[in-house]
């Protein structure tokens, strides 16, 4: 456990030193603050605009951090061959994978917290803060942790470019999985329909945990939905990490 923690800590400090991280973070913070300016261009509902853009900034920049910073960190040691030094010590490959994931998840957590604090500060200033916004940010954080797990999963057997592409595709698919149900409705009963259904069930559906719309419109957020979505996304992430550990065990690092 301490070995995983040590790798996680090293990964976190490496992520914090990453220049792209600061660039993305600054862009995100500027966008969140700019949402206030953008809201001046509207009629009524200016707070809705601030909330929507703030949450989207957290979501999209979190994704970019996972893609650019995460993928870079995952492959740096392999490209420099320093991974062999790490694995020469009594560190199992699965511990290395979990340590890398934990470090990246911690970096994502710190960044999400920073962006959230900026957004909440803006909303408190506008006297429009509601606790449901915390739930919305929590749901986005869970989604980003899942995306980080997906990045680690693809990195365990793929190249940096494909890892970034596959991870981005996972996010897109995760938000579009519901559209397969539309396709299913249009297909006649048969193998094709069953196949579409099976694909839908296998793919991650990130829309379950997306409670942004409820939070922004001030609607009640069912606790059960958030809890179940967290269990679903974290369970799926754990599954991906398990496969990643197995794949990394067989990976030729020479």
């Amino acid at each position: 456990m301490s070995r995983i923690a040590a790798i996680a800590l090293a990964t976190l400090s490496e992520a914090i030193r990453h220049r792209i991280l600061y660039l993305l973070l600054i862009f995100a913070l500027v966008l969140i603050i700019f949402s206030r300016v953008l809201s001046l261009l509207t009629v009524g509902e200016d707070v809705k605009i601030v909330k929507d853009i703030g949450l989207t900034a957290i979501n999209l920049f979190g994704l970019m951090i996972a893609l650019f910073v995460g993928v870079g960190i995952l492959f740096r040691e392999m490209e420099r061959r320093t991974v062999q030094t790490t694995l020469a010590t009594p560190v199992a490959r699965w511990e290395y994978v979990l340590g890398k994931f934990s470090g990246l998840a911690a970096a994502i957590t710190v960044n999400t917290a920073l962006m959230a604090v900026t957004l909440f500060g803006l909303l408190v200033w506008r006297e429009a803060f509601s606790p449901s916004m915390i739930v919305a940010v929590y749901s986005l954080w869970i989604e980003l942790v899942f995306i980080t797990a997906a990045a680690v999963f693809f990195a365990s057997f793929s190249t940096p470019i494909f890892t970034a592409l596959f991870t981005a595709a996972t996010w897109v698919v995760g938000h579009l999985a519901w559209s397969l149900l539309l396709l299913e409705e249009r297909l006649p009963e048969g193998i094709a329909r069953g196949l579409v259904r099976a694909v839908y069930l296998m793919l991650p559906d990130l829309e379950y945990g997306d409670v942004r719309s409820l939070a922004v419109h001030g609607l009640p957020i069912p606790f059960e939905r958030v809890a179940l979505a967290s269990v679903y996304e974290l369970g799926y992430a754990a599954l991906l990490l398990m496969v990643a550990c197995l794949a990394f065990r067989r990976r030729d690092l020479v």
Binding site: K48, T56, L60, L176, E207
Partner: peptide, 10 residues
Amino acid sequence: AVGQEETLAD
């Protein structure tokens, strides 16, 4: 909108 429907609407 790929999950960003509200922002696109805004």
